[in-house]
Design a protein around this nucleic acid. Structure first.
Lengths: 146, 146
DNA sequence: ATCAATGCAAAGAATTTGCATCATG
DNA sequence: CATGATGCAAATTCTTTGCATTGAT
């Protein structure tokens, strides 16, 4: 929920205006609760407010990505899906390499590692993305989804 | 080095032929030692062996991705870069959100977490991708690279 | 020898751009 | 009000497809 507010604040802090298009993209991602490809985002934004143009959606995706407010992730396909990062700039999930089902993880458990890396490389880490993959129980069992 | 041999073995094991195009894409990725976008791969494969067509390169990227031999990753841009996964199916790096410089990490340090997740979700995890981002020392200090 | 994999070039998507207009701060 | 942001639609770039041919096993 506050992911959205955090996102808006980050935008403002970086000196960008809060416009309809930006609000729409963030809303759509927020409400999906998961991962959406650019086509899905385009479609949903169009449904939400038909007056918003394609170009603005892409421009917004660029902006939000460059600010690390959203992040493109790839499962086992070459088509990216965008996720809204948490307030702290994290995201973690498990993806099935067969059926592409995903399990969202709320805790990344890498706090310790972050500190080690920050010390070793003298860098301040603002966030991270952690993606695990494997066969989900049902795909491992039977050969269902193709 | 053996990343390449591992990749070839995985291909064979999955029942695919080892062809010139596939070898070329893997070589190019291996030699780059890092991340290449599809255009970069196309260009380098073309230089390496001009007789290999675009379509085969894309088909190879699809195949290698679906087998988790390579993986598209997004730094802070919406253009994917492909990386060759390690023998164990891992990859980890730190990216500067400003200049996009990357530091490759050889150890992912998430072994413990993997076991916990496998137990909790009853799933066998075959690998993972871990991406940290923040400002690298030089970008944090001066305002250089644009 | 067999059938997966390929190259080619055309078709189809996806994304970006230029510019006049609009809306946010 | 001033400028950043937008919508539109054309231009561009990227990716996929169909099919005859080739090559890996």
């Amino acid at each position: 929920m506050q992911a959205l507010e955090t996102a808006l604040r980050k935008l403002r802090d970086a000196g960008y205006k809060i416009t309809e298009a930006r609000r729409a993209v963030l809303n759509v991602l927020q409400e999906s609760g998961g991962h959406l490809t650019s086509s899905q985002i385009l479609a949903r934004v169009g449904a939400y407010d038909p007056s918003i143009g394609r170009a603005s959606v892409f421009r917004t995706l660029d902006l939000l990505t460059s600010l690390s407010i959203i992040r493109p992730t790839y499962f086992n396909s070459r088509t990216p899906s965008y996720v809204l990062m948490t307030q702290e700039g994290h995201h973690a999930h498990i993806v099935c390499t067969h059926c592409h089902a995903t399990i969202e993880l709320d805790d990344c458990h890498v706090g310790q590692l972050v500190q080690e890396l920050e010390a070793r490389y003298n860098i301040r880490l603002a966030g991270h993305l952690l993606e695990f993959y494997g066969l989900c129980p049902s795909c491992a069992a039977g050969k269902d989804t193709s």
